[in-house]
């Protein structure tokens, strides 16, 4: 108990977070329950009856889930490849992989608009190859949002997975092989289960990131809205701060539920003993 004075070191951070995060959060959440001087949860009931909002919520969840799944499918093999590289090469490759995170999301989204537009790279190429006659409408759909978000968040899952995979002793894979497992079986039965903790952390980061992303869906989604852009519209365009606060509260709750569920799943995969 001699080290009690060490808690003093926490004070500045604690003060900052209390003033600028915890108090505003309480105020935000609290403000949604008061209307005309009375306590009511009416605004939430209204939202969940509103087909327009439910559609936006559905799109948001679909985009977030698809982004997360795609990141897992694309990220897993890449992360395994990266984790097996010699240190020098791995550093360079990881830096390249993280690059999307270092570019401005506005610039990144405009690049995708050029690539995915009616006269964009993809459509021109497909038309030139004679695969399609009419240009596809990819831009301003959920698909465009998903592409943009996968591009943005893939690095997150790569970093967490590479970290976990590096710590897997390669002798475990050799042991599995010496016991009769093919490369694929050894990967499936040893590498995959031991990577799950990293996979879950990465998935949470990607999911929460996609759920709250603003710029990418705003630019690539066109008229199609997600919760974050809807929130912005309510606050800035309609000046309805109470509705905006309620949306923010709903987003937080979804985030907490998802993190809780994933952590539960993670605990299940943790080696016991």
């Amino acid at each position: 108990m001699k080290k009690r004075y060490l808690y003093v070191l926490l004070a500045p951070g604690l003060l900052f977070l209390t003033l600028f995060m915890i108090v505003p959060l309480i105020l935000t959440v609290g403000s949604t329950f008061f209307k005309d001087g009375g306590f009511t949860a009416g605004i939430y009931a209204q939202f969940f009856k509103d087909a327009y909002f439910l559609d936006i919520l559905g799109t948001t969840l679909l985009v977030s889930v698809m982004t997360t799944l795609l990141c897992i499918v694309i990220g897993f093999p890449v992360a395994y490849y990266l984790s097996k590289l010699p240190p020098r090469k791995k550093g360079i490759m990881l830096a390249l992989a993280i690059f999307p995170l270092l570019t401005s999301s506005v610039v990144r989204s405009f690049s995708w608009m050029i690539i995915l537009g009616k006269n964009g790279l993809v459509n021109n190429l497909l038309t030139a190859l004679g695969i399609i006659d009419e240009p596809l409408s990819i831009l301003y759909t959920p698909a465009a949002m998903i592409i943009g978000l996968v591009h943005l968040f893939l690095p997150l899952i790569l970093i967490t997975l590479v970290g976990v995979m590096e710590s897997i002793d390669h002798d475990l894979v050799r042991a599995a092989q010496s016991l009769g497992a093919s490369r694929l079986t050894a990967f499936r039965k040893i590498v995959v289960p031991l990577s799950i903790p990293g996979l879950i952390v990465g998935s949470i980061l990607v999911f929460v990131g996609s759920l709250t992303a603003y710029t990418t869906p705003a630019l690539l989604g066109g008229k199609k809205r997600v919760v974050a852009t809807f929130l912005y519209q309510n606050a800035i365009t309609l000046n309805d701060w109470q509705a905006a606060s309620a949306i923010a509260t709903i987003m937080m709750i979804i985030t907490f539920v998802v993190i809780g569920l994933m952590n539960k799943a993670a605990a299940k995969f943790k080696p016991k003993g």
């Binding site: 002793d169 042991a175 010496s178 093919s182």
Partner: peptide, 14 residues
């Protein structure tokens, strides 16, 4: 490796 049917005991147990 997986077709050799050799048992391997590792220093790190693995």
């Amino acid at each position: 490796i997986n077709k050799r049917n050799f048992g391997f005991v590792f220093q790190s147990y693995a």
